[in-house]
Amino acid sequence: MLRDETSLEEMDRPDCDPGLLRRTYAQFPLVNAAVSGWGRLYREVIRPALPRDRPSTLLDIGCGGGDISVALARQARRDGFDLHVTGIDPDERAHRYATEARAQGRDTAVVFRRATSGDLVAAGERFDVVVSNHVLHHLTAGELAALLSDTEALTGRVAIHSDIVRSRAALLLFGAATLPLARGSFIRRDGLTSIRRSYLPGELRGLVPPQWQVLRRRPYRNLVVFRPGALP
């Protein structure tokens, strides 16, 4: 199954239906809770990297509607950490949705900004932890290299880019599981496009610098991990 490098997800189209787009953002918490595994990643990778003797910071690149940013902030707060989360996305529609949700009381420990990782590097910003969810499959090899370079400049302790593994089985399972969402949002059609656009672990290993790790997390997850100072 070759990687689909040309198809465009509906929600990335500037003229997509705004009502379907908002419902897609609203359904992301349910879908991400079911398939993305950030609870486990928080416990195993993020929490051990958070300092307890000072406030800590986390950057969520390509945060979309902001549900991962909010979930990580809440988990850290329950564990007694003073974690400040920044979610960034260059898409004005995603930024507007996330900031409106925050204004409605979703979480005051999270700040959303319309920006790219390159903007933050240029401003000299730095965070203890940097994450992204379902961003890598949107990128060409050159864009992936730029993101990883930005991430190295932004990360103080650990970075995790989590994405889907391309697989026919994943296509079948996701397609069946999301049938109830097929009419009311872009979740099903864009999710299937995302799977077809996603990288295999071996493909990523051929693209990332030596100081990065590519890990396979079953059933269908790629983790691209960076720890500053770690030996290649």
Rank of each mutant, 00 (worst) to 15 (best):
L2C: 13
L2H: 15
L2T: 14
D4R: 00
T6M: 12
T6S: 10
R13Q: 15
C16S: 12
D17A: 01
D17S: 09
P18S: 13
P18A: 06
L20Q: 07
T24N: 10
T24H: 04
Y25N: 01
A34T: 14
A34G: 15
A34P: 11
V35W: 05
W38S: 04
G39N: 11
R40I: 11
L41P: 04
V45P: 06
V45F: 14
P48N: 08
D53R: 15
R54P: 03
P55E: 14
T57R: 01
T57Y: 00
G62M: 01
D67W: 00
I68D: 01
V70N: 04
R74M: 09
A76E: 00
R77M: 13
F81A: 08
F81E: 08
D89A: 00
P90M: 02
E92A: 09
R93A: 00
Y97M: 03
Y97W: 09
A98T: 02
E100R: 08
A101T: 06
R102S: 13
R106E: 10
D107T: 07
D107C: 09
V110C: 04
V110T: 01
T116G: 10
A122R: 15
R126S: 10
D128V: 13
V131Y: 03
V131A: 07
N133V: 12
V135D: 03
H138L: 15
L139N: 08
L139R: 11
T140Y: 11
T140G: 11
G142S: 13
G142W: 10
E143A: 07
L147K: 02
L148P: 04
L148V: 12
E152T: 13
A153L: 13
L154R: 01
G156I: 02
V158R: 15
A159V: 06
I160G: 05
I160N: 04
S162H: 12
R166H: 15
S167L: 12
A169N: 08
A169G: 04
A170T: 13
L171W: 12
L171R: 07
L173S: 05
A176M: 14
A177D: 05
A177L: 09
T178P: 11
L181T: 09
R183L: 12
G184W: 06
G184F: 02
R188D: 07
D190A: 07
D190P: 01
T193L: 09
T193I: 13
T193W: 09
I195W: 04
I195G: 01
R196C: 06
R196H: 07
R196Q: 10
Y199S: 00
Y199D: 00
E203F: 12
L204C: 15
L204P: 02
G206Q: 14
G206H: 09
L207C: 11
P210I: 05
Q213P: 06
L215T: 15
P219G: 05
P219C: 10
Y220V: 14
Y220S: 11
Y220L: 12
R221S: 06
R227I: 14
P228G: 08
G229W: 06
P232W: 14
